[in-house]
Amino acid sequence: MAVDIASIDTPVLVGVSLLVLAFLIGCSRGRDTWLFVDFLATAAFGLAWYFVPDVILGFQINVTPDGTHLTYSRAFAACMIGDAVTRYFCRSSKDASTLVYLLFSRIVGCTILIVSMVYIQYFGGNTWTQNHIFFGMVGNMLWMMGSVIYYYQSRYSGGHAQLESRLNMHLRFDGFLVLVIGLTIFGFPDLFLKIQTTLESYDGAHLHMARSTGALLIGSSILSFMAPGFLFDWDKRAIFVGRIVKLFLTVLAVLYAAAKYDAWGGNLHLYFLMESIVALNALLGYYAPHETERYKSN
């Protein structure tokens, strides 16, 4: 379990050094700066995982990435990009609840992701290299620690009085749907792989990328559950915007995989049914009136 520094690629060490520097700068400039750094990091790494997954994944594993590796990497990336979209719109919110729960949801998602990383690195076979420890684990811990610092510095724990409304109902339902999907993928990644592919066996990279997607979905569901307590309707609707972006990118990745890779294409109707339910709820929620919109000031 010891880390062999000599086995770490030099570009990875340089990259980690830059990540540490960005973390120190971002954390030293206050919560608003950290939230902006968090948005930039989420968007940048999400785009990298989506468009060049073979590069990002390739130097962290001991096997040649196949179509399933790449597709689940893109699903993981879609979660990051969708999350970045939500954070772009919410990071400047004047509602303290919104900012506190942005931090808290990040902590939850990253914590679960770290658990999966530690398990697959040390107890899940030898698929992942030492590069994964530095690029993956260290990077994710820094990603989480900034949110931990500012979450526990917050004097306000968040939350406002919630009235019954269609918008809040759809947010709660979104949280429930995404939580169930996230928990299922995280707990039973082989089930999703069996449904979506014709692979007869799965390596550590297959299982971990599926679990990583589940971890981010669980973190995202927390934000949806907390959002009915947000003060402003545009902060609430930002969650649905991010969800729709995530779904669009994931469906594109799955359609591409079904057309390009022989192992993909089985039972896709079940997958699209699941995503359609989430998408329909997100659209209905986005266009639902907020409870305060019915009141007009004279």
Rank of each mutant, 00 (worst) to 15 (best):
A279E: 06
I114T: 14
D262V: 12
I8P: 03
E293G: 00
V55W: 10
F186H: 10
I149L: 15
A238S: 14
N267A: 04
A43T: 13
L102M: 13
N126R: 10
Y72I: 11
H206P: 00
G285Q: 10
Y101P: 03
Y150K: 13
M169R: 05
W49Y: 15
F272Q: 13
F89S: 08
W234G: 00
S93L: 08
M1S: 04
H206I: 13
V12L: 14
L270I: 05
A75N: 10
D235M: 02
D235V: 03
T250E: 01
V100H: 15
V12R: 09
A96V: 09
D66Y: 13
G125V: 12
L231Y: 09
T250I: 13
T250F: 13
P228S: 07
A227G: 07
L70Y: 02
F240L: 01
A96T: 09
D203R: 07
V63W: 01
H69E: 13
A205C: 14
T68D: 01
Y72V: 12
G139L: 07
V180Y: 00
Y271F: 15
A279V: 14
E291F: 06
H170P: 06
G219Y: 04
H206E: 11
I181R: 02
L167Q: 11
A41S: 14
V118F: 10
A161C: 04
A288S: 07
N267C: 00
L99F: 06
M80T: 04
V115T: 08
F123K: 13
M145S: 14
F232L: 03
R91V: 01
V85F: 11
F225V: 03
Y50C: 09
A77N: 12
L270W: 09
A253V: 08
T184H: 07
V278P: 01
D4K: 10
L280V: 12
A279H: 00
S221H: 04
A44K: 02
C27D: 08
G26F: 09
N281D: 14
F123G: 03
A288P: 01
I25R: 09
S116T: 06
L70P: 04
F51Y: 12
T129C: 11
Y122G: 02
L207Y: 11
E200P: 00
V148N: 03
G204N: 10
C110F: 05
P289N: 02
I114N: 05
S97M: 02
F59P: 08
I185S: 04
L177I: 11
D203A: 13
F36Q: 02
V148P: 00
L183C: 13
W34F: 13
F89W: 07
T198G: 12
V138K: 01
T250V: 10
V37T: 14
G139N: 12
M145E: 15
L207K: 14
Y295D: 02
D83K: 10
R87V: 01
H206V: 14
V20A: 12
P289A: 02
R155C: 11
V16D: 05
I107H: 06
F225W: 06
I112W: 03
